[in-house]
Design a protein around this nucleic acid. Structure first.
Length: 271
DNA sequence: ATGGTAGCGCTGCTA
């Protein structure tokens, strides 16, 4: 089973690029983030023509937007966390607004519960958006813990907007007291790992300088100034079958690329 | 230290 995640930063702008990439890479499942398309505008027929079913959670179509494409079945779609995980704590209106954005979609593909997530950016440590990011992650952890308790193989893939460790950052000195690297964010990501989810890319590779996002500005991509913030987390039994993974830097090149590269993971199938 | 680019939509906001 080949799975990929890609923050596409406007599916409208990059549909042709995604179509070509699907034909080239042939993933069984693709998780997309930042589609920036309302569900009514989602190009499900274009994907159907390539053999993929799809589910979109697009919201207002201006910001955010997540989706899952699958050619191995797509059952029981959901666009919110487990309700029990959502209802656990009171939040203010601002945080409630962020929790209500289109940042989560899930479906069962070939027996695996696949979630495509777009974690809030956070902006800066003193911004209310950062507080919302921490709450959003807390809800995701609650959701994932309940999911893990079911014993169903699960995968949480997407743009986490967290670089797990300093080796995932091109220059950690530039990210002191900033989002994506703060201790609080990393501790929340660690809690996902503690409930049994595995960072499948790190499982295979120990090297630094392997990034999935590069700022459009100042030639960061070509200067190698990036972060590894796009992750494919897999539950234990699934992670035991991780065979291969790559960050597809080729897809960050050429005309009008997304600022993110796709992360691809192959799992051995159960036989 | 600052600003650099890109997408959305038309004014700045978001990243």
């Amino acid at each position: 089973m080949r799975v990929a995640t890609w923050n596409i930063n406007s599916l409208k702008v990059r549909l042709a690029r995604v179509e070509e990439w699907l034909v080239d890479v042939e993933p069984d499942v693709l998780c997309l983030q930042e589609t920036k398309l309302a569900d009514a505008a989602f190009p499900s027929l274009a994907f159907q023509a390539l053999g993929y079913q799809s589910i979109s959670h697009g919201g207002d179509g201006r910001w955010n937007g997540v989706a899952i494409l699958s050619r191995v079945g797509l059952e029981d779609p959901a666009t919110t966390f487990n309700p029990a995980a959502i209802a656990s704590v009171d939040v203010d209106d601002y945080v409630a607004g962020v929790l209500g954005e289109s940042r989560f979609v899930a479906a069962t593909c070939a027996g695996v519960r696949v979630s495509s997530v777009y974690v809030p950016n956070g902006r800066s440590l003193d911004d209310a958006h950062y507080g919302a990011k921490l709450v959003w992650l807390d809800r995701l952890i609650e959701h994932a813990a309940r999911q893990e308790a079911t014993g169903q193989p699960a995968m949480i893939a997407g743009d986490f907007n967290i670089a797990p460790e300093d080796r995932d950052v091109y220059d950690p000195r530039k990210f002191v007291d900033s989002t994506h690297t703060s201790a609080a964010e990393r501790a929340l990501l660690q809690r996902l790992l503690d409930i049994g989810m595995v960072d499948t890319f790190r499982q295979l590779y120990d090297q630094d300088k392997l990034y999935s996002w590069w700022d459009y500005r100042a030639g960061d991509f070509h200067q190698g100034r990036g972060l590894r913030i796009d992750l494919v987390l897999a539950s234990q039994q699934l992670a035991e079958r991780t065979r291969w993974s790559i960050i597809d830097r080729q897809a960050r090149k050429g005309k009008q690329p997304s600022d993110h590269a796709p992360v691809i993971v192959d799992f051995d199938d159960v036989s």
